[in-house]
Write a protein that binds this DNA or RNA. Structure first.
Lengths: 262, 262
DNA sequence: AGAAGGACCAGTGGTCCGTA
DNA sequence: AGAAGGACCAGTGGTCCGTA
């Protein structure tokens, strides 16, 4: 029950941060412990956004065990008026199994976040089914909100979307993914460079499947819950059309979309 | 090519309204002709809403035949400054095969609109695939927009959503659907009463399938492209839970959600 | 400089309610 | 009164850019 509860809070203190049961549920059950927690807080948030309002009418129709579920948490707003949660430590390129040292997080931890999100989605789906509400099939805003309420404040949409294609490569060809991690670690590359490098083997893989990136995502159970990133979709389409049209945000690839290395 | 192009424009004039090729494509190919067109125009619209802007970047990546597709139409705004399209004639309860007379539309026509939407969705999907964009699986706002641009100005979201469950019953058990139409026509009931009556047999049907209304919709090809109406979902859940919680908008059913007639 | 994520924005699902 | 649908609204997908 309490084994790796502290995954999210191991190095770096902030132990007064309430640890939610929901995080335990979202933990996959492995044994690893990563260093995750950011530098000590010093900022005081002000807005506190009490929006979210408008409880759905007729919410009383479910009975028994499920009547709160979405209401967990509500804490992380200035408990003692002091420690406000800070940014996560930045990622560094680590090899499989390697724990990042210092104020850094490793890539095993990054991929672990995707699995936590899957578990949070599963919780949201269960709640929705109990209540007879529309049931999401993807990691939506609602899931991110649920994760946050459940205390997993280190999970957020921009981060997860940013690295989806890296996780995709990890799912679809772990050997290649691992090889790239090792090579980029050796070369001392930063996370951004590693992230960019994950596109190429994914594209090669997609090419072997008729460039059907949606099909590739939806066929893999761990991947099917993630939206296909726009950039990846565009790269696949550009490759398929053999046109060197590359969106601005991957312009470091520009001119190399046809057959050369990139 | 030109056989039932005028389905949408048969009785009621307004022949100066441009008939779009896209409508032809969206016609299912049957032979029936309904009376659809509203009373002659007299209102002048003012806003004209030229929004929609922001063409997606890198739109040039598709080649050949598809480069406009979303741009069709653009006409129906005060062509000669005169006839502005008016409301559709209201629906009346008709038996299968019966043509509504006077300034009315019949239920075969209503169901035909659902099939036109399916065809418009299919067109939107083809365009999206050609362009390598995200491909909708349901009748979304984008599809309604496409339908409107293609000249099918009589299709709109509130109307289609309003009668989805009636179409569902028509798809899932045409015999029962037809029987209700005949009976309600005989009794001289209005469309609202007929619409309400469509819930009950649908619920009975859902009960036989474990109240899995999402599963029922997604298993039927013509139905899977429609969102399950919120009211129907709530009714199924209430029945499943044997609780008499009925949303306000179907309160004419109130007190009858457990076992009695309704 | 490289990176994390709050917060914004255009377009969505949903449907109310002013209209005819 | 009964009904059609413009138009609004809360919450979405997507990601920029002020922040650290």
């Amino acid at each position: 029950n309490t084994n790796n509860v502290l995954d999210a809070l191991s190095q770096g203190g902030l132990s007064e941060e309430p640890v939610q049961q929901q995080i335990e549920a979202a933990e996959s059950g492995g044994g690893a412990t990563w260093n995750i927690v950011p530098s000590a807080g010093k900022k005081i948030k002000k807005s506190k956004k009490k929006v979210q309002g408008r409880r759905k009418s007729a919410a009383s129709c479910s009975r028994g065990t499920d009547n709160d579920d979405d209401e967990v948490g509500d804490d992380q707003s200035g408990q003692g008026g002091r420690a406000e949660r800070q940014r996560e430590h930045p990622f560094i390129v680590t090899e499989p199994g390697e724990i990042a040292r210092g104020k850094k997080n490793g890539l095993d931890y990054l991929f672990h976040l995707y699995e936590q999100c899957a578990e949070f989605l599963s919780q949201v789906q269960n709640i929705a089914k109990e209540r007879g509400e529309k049931c999401p099939t993807k990691v939506t805003n609602q899931v991110f909100r649920h994760a946050k309420k459940a205390g997993a404040t280190y999970i957020n949409k921009p981060k997860m979307r940013h690295y989806v294609h890296c996780y995709a490569l990890h799912c679809l060809d772990e050997d290649i993914s691992n090889a790239i991690r090792k090579s980029f670690k050796e070369r001392g590359e930063n996370v951004g460079a590693w992230r960019q490098a994950c596109f190429e083997p994914l594209l090669a893989l997609a090419g072997r499947q008729g460039w059907d990136i949606d099909g590739i995502f939806s066929s893999h159970p761990g991947l099917s819950i993630w939206y296909v990133p726009t950039v990846l979709r565009k790269l696949c389409h550009a490759q398929c059309s053999n046109l060197a049209v590359v969106p601005k945000s991957v312009s470091s690839f520009a001119g190399a979309t046809t057959s050369h290395s990139y």
